[in-house]
């Protein structure tokens, strides 16, 4: 990554973190309906992988999808309004946090079914192969999803058809309250690639440059018609499973440990040390984004609710 790309990457990660911090604050105040799951700590994965994509490429996401949305270029106003269930939201309030999508930017939906998006991405890659349009599809999913049958079926199918898809496992160590080490037969998800003849690597998911390098290689392989790759990105879950999770299943020590390796601090420190970024510039970035967030919340809260008479709208074309 060039210095400029690293700076851009830092900014993109910072935006996601500040977005999620704000979500936690606003959710606690009440008024934001439902459940939210934050992307905090995994920023380098969305930013690193999506940074390796072209705008027309496709991604499928998870219940923890805000980061993917932002990184893929979804409009901030539409995202926040969606979290509030407003007609002005990206999904006109029909989806919410767990089902947020931005098809105009190739974001084929967050998915509240664990593993639900994996086969969809395989389908995106199938469409690309049949239509010959060169698009690459990326499936984001967690370590928990890699124990779903559809994960295994999808890797096998993508492999035998040599589809242009990249499987990106965001291994945060926890499937809700169940540790990865307990629930998985392997010590690394990347070990599962060999069962499907898919090249697989495991990288530090808090290291933006490492994620980006691995993603670029996988995307290039897909784009050239050489088939799928599996990329495991390890990024410990900094926060609870959902906002408000009392985390009775892990000790404070474990939670603190998960916060030790912060993708944003880590890159910012490097860039400051190398004289590429100043503390002032970093603050200016924060301030600017904070203002944009303020305006997005104003936009969202001023937005109209969907008309109850429209409850059956959008079921069919």
């Amino acid at each position: 990554m060039t210095d400029e790309e690293q700076l851009e990457g830092l900014l993109a990660m910072l935006r996601i973190r500040m977005f999620e911090d704000r979500v936690r604050t606003e959710f606690a105040k009440g008024g934001m309906p439902g459940f939210v799951h934050t992307y905090s700590g995994a920023e380098a994965i969305a930013v690193g992988v999506i940074g390796a994509l072209e705008p027309a490429d496709l991604i499928t996401s998870t219940h923890r999808g805000h980061g993917h949305c932002l990184a893929k270029g979804a409009p901030l106003d539409g995202i926040v309004a969606e979290l509030y269930g407003r007609e002005t939201g990206l999904c006109k309030g029909r989806g919410g946090s767990m089902h947020i999508a931005d098809f105009a930017n190739g974001m084929l939906g967050a998915n509240a079914i664990v593993g639900g998006g994996i086969a969809l991405a395989v389908g995106g890659a199938l469409a690309s192969q049949v239509l010959g349009d060169g698009r690459v599809a990326v499936a984001f999913f967690g370590d928990g999803a890699s124990n779903e049958g559809v994960f295994h079926e999808s890797l096998n199918l993508a492999s035998i058809w040599s589809l242009p898809v990249v499987f990106v496992c965001e291994n945060n160590g926890w499937a809700e309250s169940t540790p990865f080490s307990y629930a998985s037969s392997v010590s690394s998800i990347a070990e599962r690639g060999v069962a499907y003849s898919i090249p697989a690597v495991s990288v530090d998911g808090t290291d933006l440059t490492a994620v980006r390098a691995a993603a670029s290689a996988a995307v290039a392989r897909a784009r050239q018609g050489n088939g799928p790759s599996l990329l495991e990105c390890i990024a410990p879950r900094r926060e609870g499973h959902f906002v408000g999770d009392p985390e009775e299943y892990r000790g404070r020590e474990q939670a603190d440990q998960a916060r030790e390796s912060d993708p944003i601090d880590r890159l910012a420190e490097q860039l400051v040390a190398r004289g590429i970024l100043s503390a002032e510039a970093l603050n200016a970035m924060r301030k600017d984004w904070s203002g944009q967030l303020d305006r997005a919340y104003e936009f969202a809260l001023a937005g109209p609710w969907p008309d109850p008479l429209d409850v059956e709208r959008y079921v069919y074309s």
Binding site: L58, T60, F103, L108, I118, A119, L120, A121, V122, G123, G124, A125, L126, A127, S128, V130, L131, R135, A137, G149, V150, E153, S154, N156, L157, I160
Partner: peptide, 18 residues
């Protein structure tokens, strides 16, 4: 292959993608 979830899932994704 005999993979109903992946068959239908990939068909859904392919339908979304054109």
């Amino acid at each position: 292959p005999i993979s109903e979830a992946a068959i239908v899932g990939s068909a859904v994704g392919a339908a979304m993608a054109g």
